[in-house]
Design a protein around this nucleic acid. Structure first.
Lengths: 125, 125
DNA sequence: TGATAATATATCAACATTACTATATTATAG
DNA sequence: CTATAATATAGTAATGTTGATATATTATCA
């Protein structure tokens, strides 16, 4: 028995604080919409409206997902009049996404049509 | 109204297949125990028992978390008699964790004692 | 001031994840 | 075969996440 009894739920008792932070960071990336957002923001800041149009999503959804990224310090928000412009806080996040892309590319290396889509993504910047 | 009505739940309707795969990958990393496992596996394959001892967790927990990583193709399992040895499928996952570490290092750059822990991690291999 | 535009947040139901326990599977040894 | 060891999985209750809707906040303009 290596852990406290009588517990339930989703977050471990032990497992260093640091890994918990890392896990929260990855969890913030763990959503298709947020990944799409980041892939756009890598190319430069965008207002909520611009993201909303690019993603074809309702406004509250966009704000909610941006809030997740904001709470993890992945993006930051600057008010510009009525609009709010979001930007990546660290360009390394872009590298992270690119590295993840390479991992998929390896993994799916001869699987389905997903490969061709990955390749296409790789060619454009 | 940019999306189908009458839906509920957790996965978006639109958002390309590819981003969904990427999200699943990140979700597999999004747990403190699994991160600790990967940080060990980066240094070489381990049996379930070895991981269990290193992490001080009950056996079913270890197997469950390994199953999550296995289902995403992040690790693979080889039977060796009674034991099962798990290994990283792609060394790039190690690079991904290291890149994530650098992002935290930037982010927490003058925050709490977490920073010193990150620095220490960075020094050893 | 009031009206409007852009964004944010609260609430809630559907669904997903998790730790725990008990049990199943698989392989080896006797 | 039976017993045992190592690992995997099923079931379940607690908790977390999400999309939709409604409403709140904030800034601009008339």
């Amino acid at each position: 028995m290596a852990r406290t009894r009588g517990r339930r739920g989703t977050e471990p008792v032990v497992a260093g604080e640091l890994q918990t932070f890392k896990a929260r960071f990855f969890r913030a990336l763990a959503h298709p919409t947020r990944i799409r957002m980041l892939e756009i923001l890598v190319r430069g800041g965008r207002t909520v409206q611009e993201l909303q149009e690019a993603l074809m999503l309702d406004q509250p959804i966009v704000s909610q997902q941006l809030a997740v990224l904001r709470n993890q310090g992945i993006v930051s928000a600057q008010k510009k009049g009525l609009a709010v412009r979001y930007t990546l806080r660290d360009p390394l996040v872009g590298e992270l996404l690119e590295l993840a892309r390479r991992i998929f590319s390896n993994h799916f290396d001869n699987t389905r049509g997903l490969l061709s889509e990955l390749r296409r993504e790789g060619r454009r910047g």
